[in-house]
Design a binder for these strands. Sequence first.
DNA 1: CTGAAAGCGCTAACAG
DNA 2: CTGTTAGCGCTTTCAG
Lengths: 336, 336
Amino acid sequence: MSQSGRVKMADVAREAGVSVATVSKVVNGRWGVSAATVERVLAVVGDLGYEASLGASSLRSHRTNVLGVLLAEFEPFSTELLKGVSEAVGHTDFELLAFSGGRSGGGVGWERRSLARLGGSLVDGAIVVTPTVVDAGNGIPVVAVDPHTGPSEVPTVDSDNLAGAMSAVEHLIGLGHRRIAHLAGRDDLESARLREEGFRRAMAAAGLAVDESLVRVGGYRAESADAVVREMLTGADRPTAVFAANDLTAIHTMAVAAELGLRVPDDLSVVGFDNVPESALTDPGLTTVAQPLHEMGRRAVEVLVELLQDGADGEPAHVRLPTQLVVRQSCAAPPR
Amino acid sequence: MSQSGRVKMADVAREAGVSVATVSKVVNGRWGVSAATVERVLAVVGDLGYEASLGASSLRSHRTNVLGVLLAEFEPFSTELLKGVSEAVGHTDFELLAFSGGRSGGGVGWERRSLARLGGSLVDGAIVVTPTVVDAGNGIPVVAVDPHTGPSEVPTVDSDNLAGAMSAVEHLIGLGHRRIAHLAGRDDLESARLREEGFRRAMAAAGLAVDESLVRVGGYRAESADAVVREMLTGADRPTAVFAANDLTAIHTMAVAAELGLRVPDDLSVVGFDNVPESALTDPGLTTVAQPLHEMGRRAVEVLVELLQDGADGEPAHVRLPTQLVVRQSCAAPPR
DNA sequence: CTGAAAGCGCTAACAG
DNA sequence: CTGTTAGCGCTTTCAG
């Protein structure tokens, strides 16, 4: 039947002998079409396999029943989150659209760009993952997961980064470590700032001084951390343990250590943060602070859907979930 | 500056004192605009933070520089693939859009629906993940990953399911197993069919008869496999080993075994297929057949981009990548 | 070099 | 109940 290109509403209309307006009404279940017509049109729709163009209908109706997830790139953190989001969305009748705009790693501002490109038409609401700047949305409801600025005027979902970081460092201290390094995220990320803060508090609580030369910014990506890690591990007085701000850089730390001939955990202990599945794939398995990533995704959907239904009444929600230390094999007592 | 809703091209035009047509030309880098005007418009664009609406521009131009990934839901298999896709797309100047249409698990036809909704406007080309029916695209280039029908008129990317399955079963046989069950996918999935075929060939090669009561369809999801697994493991003459058609059902098999008081691998050996990161998270770790998921995603992008640039000249590409057995701790010699 | 006008495919008032 | 008439925000001729 359908010969070239996509089937459009006009094709259905012609075939069914009605106007496009009528087809539109039928397709959208609007009132005021005779049962006979509805049936005929639906038959043709099925026949031709017609499906409305998301772009076109959204342009006009500003209601698409599609939820958007905006992210810088599809890496372990955001894909884990997506699993939770996907599961939760499956219980609603929304469709799900994940968008990664701009070039990988996204120059700053990807969240604004993406929001502008999709918002106001394609998606009814959006979940932005790890945004560094949140514009209170672009006319559409937005919830931020693990945002830059920490709780603000836009609803957020995150985990208890401070307590999580403390538990990780306490674990190292408990094993006997004194010379502990922190491979920090970036100052402009709230989660990273809190993890560093947790590191410092745990150290202070144990009466340990922080050697500032061992607190270095590695970002959240392997590439950005590489040079810093090498330097840290080849330095004269290298640390006996490293607390990395996330799993990706922790895993990279282990890789660099191996390359340098250091055994983990015998020569160097490593702790990460996130508990992405990849952290269990390393050898030895990475001890890390688990964030309930799936749950965070589910909660974000919950908050967003509620916003969509009830509107933004009152204070924005700020959901904070607990973290938990997952002990694997990457930590041991320090070498003597 | 921007007060309500999104900034649109008309706003930029007004502010810059030119027509929308001119703004459009500038924004799209078209020829024939004076340097002075270009500069002025660009300044306003930056100022107002203007970003073209994907929906609107795609509607008119049929070129969006966005690649689509269509999937039934965001589960481990497709998200691993996405990581590879994302990485590869990062090296191009395309943006990436992953869409999961319809309700979770998607009634059949989700691939057609999604393609119709996005194709012809929103995306320039699409990668469909595990489609059960491939319509040769909806006017746009399409490449299928791990498709239903096996190599066909649409380009495909998959892995060597037959050899992979054989290696898994040979591993079990090598350990001394004779009574091996196969938790099959579904007959209408090419990959599942080939895995079953591999199972049978390996058994035959070893001179072992297949007990047909131990070849049961579990689908690719935990829920669909649950009842079948329970029945299999509680039967009178239960198998000493199970080769599941994918990791998700293998993992579920281990869970059910644990629930029934069976120890893995002492009482029951289990092998999976896919090697999604989750397979390393189980206790004991799951022995499984690795598919190069990231690589498959990368290759799919490669094929798609080429299609987009050079058009579909000649035979459709069919990329088949090798699999590899990953031995963890879920298999041992059968109990005597 | 610039702007006016005509749609892309669809939905939302309105008339008939 | 049904069709006609306007656009949504943008790109693209085609005159000026």
